[in-house]
Design a protein around this nucleic acid. Sequence first.
DNA 1: ACAAAAGTGTTAAATGTACACCCATGC
DNA 2: GCATGGGTGTACATTTAACACTTTTGT
Lengths: 229, 229
Amino acid sequence: MTYSYEFPRPALTVDIVVFALDEDDLKVMLIQRDLEPFAGQWALPGGFVRLDETLDAAARRELEEETGLKGIFLEQLYTFGEVDRDPRERIVTVAYFALVNLEGHKVQASTDARNAAWFAAGDLPALAFDHERIFDAALDRLRSKVRYQPIGFELLPPKFPLRSLQHLYEVVLDRELDKRNFRKKILSMDVLVELDEIEKDVSHRAARLYRFDKKKYDRKTRKGFNFEL
Amino acid sequence: MTYSYEFPRPALTVDIVVFALDEDDLKVMLIQRDLEPFAGQWALPGGFVRLDETLDAAARRELEEETGLKGIFLEQLYTFGEVDRDPRERIVTVAYFALVNLEGHKVQASTDARNAAWFAAGDLPALAFDHERIFDAALDRLRSKVRYQPIGFELLPPKFPLRSLQHLYEVVLDRELDKRNFRKKILSMDVLVELDEIEKDVSHRAARLYRFDKKKYDRKTRKGFNFEL
DNA sequence: ACAAAAGTGTTAAATGTACACCCATGC
DNA sequence: GCATGGGTGTACATTTAACACTTTTGT
C-alpha cells in the first residue's frame, strides 16, 4: 500500500436502512431533511463518521440521534462510492441495515427536531441522493439473509406465536407459506423454546408463545448446524 | 443527514484479496511493503482512493499498479473502520475480493518495483495492519459465495474439464466430493456447454472440455433459477 | 500390458410439498 | 352457536448420498 498524508480525502458518512414489521407491512424509517440539498425530501438516517469512532459506532450514534432507536440489530451492508452521489462534493457512505421490533422500541420521532417516520417498504416517497439504491440493496440483503440466518427474530418481540414468525417470512419473502410445513420445518430445527404462555387479548383461541433460543442456536451452529428456511 | 464541510476526515483506502487456484492450493497475492510502518512485511495490495474515482475504480487501479493484474473478477467485501487499525492515523479501508485464473494472467511481479508473490492461503506469513482479518473475511466470503453463485469459474481458464471444477470446489470448501454426484449435479443445472475439444498433453485418457455459459445462466436466473452446489 | 484418470447408474434414505379437518376461545 | 384462527398427519414426489466397475489413452 502506498502511503501519503497529503491526498485530498473524500468525506465519509454512514446511512442506515432500518426495517420493522407492521401488522401487514414491512416498514422503513425515513427522516425528512431540513437542509439543502434535497431540503424537505425524505432520506435515510445517517451522518458523518468522526475520527474517534468506528463505523459501527457512528451508525449507532446517528441512529439514536436522529430516530431515538438504540440497542437494535445493526449490520454493515455495502459502501457506496460513486463520484457524484452527492451534488456538492465527494462523499463516500458506508450503508448499514438494521432490524427492530416495532413494539419494543417506540420511536421518538425526532430527538434532534427532525421529522422521522415509518413508511411501507413497498411504497416509499422519492428519496434524496442515491438512497433508493441503498434501500434496494438493503431489501435484497434482508430477503436473502433471512433465509439462512436467524435474523428475522429481530423484527419480533421476544415472545411470539408461530403465526407471527410465518407472517414475517411471508412479508419479507413476498410469498405464501404452508402453515403445516412451516411449523414442521421451524420446529424441527430445534432452536425455538415453547413457552408456558399464550397470547393475550385476542378474540379467538390464543396461540402458544415461543422464543428463539440463541444459546442453543450458537451451540448447534458450532457443531455444523445451518439455519435454513 | 447532517452536513458540514468542516469535519476532520478519515483517510480512505482500498485493499484487495486476490485468490487464484494452483494445482493443489488456493493462493493469495501479497506484496512486500517498502515503507514504514511494517516495512519489509507482507500486506494486501491496495492504496488511497482518489477524489475523482469510484471505489471499484480505485481497487482496479491499485491492483494493476501493484501486481499487473487487470480485467479480473472483483467484488466489494466489507469496509473496515477500527479506529487504530493503522498506527499513524485514522484510515478506513474498503476491502475487495478478487478471483483470477492463474494461467491466463501471469503476474508482472512488480510493475512499480514492489515485490509481489502468490502464497498458499493456508500458510500465509504475518501480515501488516489488520490484513489478516481482512483475509479471513475474504476467505469466508469465497467459501460461502462459491456455493450459490457461479463465481468459481473465474478461477479456471475458459475451457476446463469437469475434474478441474470439482477440484476447485474441493479446495475451496475443503472437503472431498463424490465424482458421480458432482457431475450429475453440475450438469443437471444446465449452465455448462460440452465442447468438441479435449485436454491436451496428458499422459492418460484426455477429458472432455466444458465452458460456463454465462448467457444461459443469466437467462435462467431471470426465470427464477438458483445456482447451488 | 499396464498405469492413470475418464466416464457412467442404481438404490435407499432424507427431505420437501401438497393438502383438509377438528379444536379452543371470545363474543 | 358461530366466527376466528390454532393446531395437527399422511402420502407422494424430489433430492441427496453412497457406492464400483469399464473405457480410453499414453507410455
